[in-house]
Write a protein that binds this DNA or RNA. Structure first.
Lengths: 196, 196
DNA sequence: GTAATTTCTTAACATAGGTGAATGTCCAGG
DNA sequence: CCTGGACATTCACCTATGTTAAGAAATTAC
């Protein structure tokens, strides 16, 4: 199952990596399984790990003043997830990360992440590219969120992430899109009627 | 004026850098001035440069199907701006970048950026941290956009970026916040009445 | 298998924010 | 100094989405 990680690194870098380089990653990380509804990261606590999902599903979210959950990111197999600002700055996490299914992940501690980058500068590059990709998709998302209607955003979401639709509860998708679950229900109904 | 760049790098890294390292940056980049309303990046074209603003102001935006401009990012002195996905991937830019004032910037070509990272791995780290910071603020922005009302978002914007309010036209701030310029006008009036 | 809980749907009503049009203000260029 | 264009404001009206509440459906726990 761990070969998924190697493939992820090589695909991101656009080149194969030597065995010793990958072995170093394995030596500095470890695999762990979690039950459904387990908190990987808790808001306000320090977030020590970055998670690469081998199996399962989880999501990060933030709770606003009114106490509403707002999904920020989803992660299935082959995705990385963490509290981006907390992990890198060692400050308190802004978001929660919680499993949606029984989940197995590779955990990389911040210290080991830094060690890894020192040992193999190619890992510095790997994480840089990972973040570039992340950044691009976030900009795209912001642009769409600010300028398109909810129905369009939902269609775009199903087009880009068809796997998510199957495995993630609808009320979380609604909050990811910035709308109420009832509104998403209504939108789905309208779209279904139109296409029939 | 170029010392602003050095300070930016050192502040981001959290450590001073040796002279030869900074000189290498100077050797691989160049300074250029632009008039107001000049396009630094054009959507659909390849974006070769990353810009560090020494003086002036510019913004990136995207145009949706209806032909509406949507501000994505603003940049004043001491800010970096580019088309994040186009610059790194060599693919076509998604966004425009345009000056709002006469602007002087340091231009770093993608090839030289890569050279720089090869010559000094600390630059790899610098750009990684730059992106981490960028990523954190984008996540924060998404979370707020999806869960807070426009009036709150505007107040948050003025709190975080008071300098922007002075120098950036209101209709662009409105589009950055995801609302119509008339709505921002209304919001400002309501806030002014409340506080008096 | 049944009860308890969580998620989804529907409907009626409320409201934030969009739209279009008119007017005002401020510059920059001739 | 005048004029055209860009930006900001206001208003009246409209629509997408939020809200509240209820019940249906699906999932989980015992």
């Amino acid at each position: 199952m761990i070969t998924l990680l190697r493939k992820n690194i090589e695909a991101t870098l656009g080149q194969p990596i030597p065995d010793d380089m990958f072995d170093r990653f394995i030596a500095l990380s470890f695999e762990k399984s979690f039950e459904k509804k387990h908190y990987l990261v808790v808001e306000g606590a320090v977030c020590h790990y970055q998670y690469f999902i081998l199996q399962g599903a989880c999501y990060s979210y933030y709770i606003n003043e009114k106490g509403e959950k707002n999904a920020v990111q989803f992660a299935l197999e082959n995705y990385w997830i963490s509290d981006p600002s907390g992990y890198f700055t060692r400050k308190k996490a802004n978001f929660f990360v919680e499993t949606l299914e029984p989940t197995t992940a590779v955990l990389l501690h911040r210290k080991n992440f830094e060690q890894l980058c020192r040992d193999y500068p190619l890992y510095d590059r790997f994480f840089r590219i990972l973040m570039q990709n992340h950044l691009s998709s976030l900009y795209y998302r912001i642009a769409k969120t600010n300028s398109e209607e909810a129905a369009y955003r939902f269609q775009e979401f199903t087009r880009l992430y068809p796997q998510f639709i199957q495995r993630i509860p609808q009320y979380l998708i609604a909050s990811y899109l910035g709308i109420a679950p009832q509104s998403l229900s209504r939108i789905r109904r309208n779209l279904a009627q139109q296409s029939s």
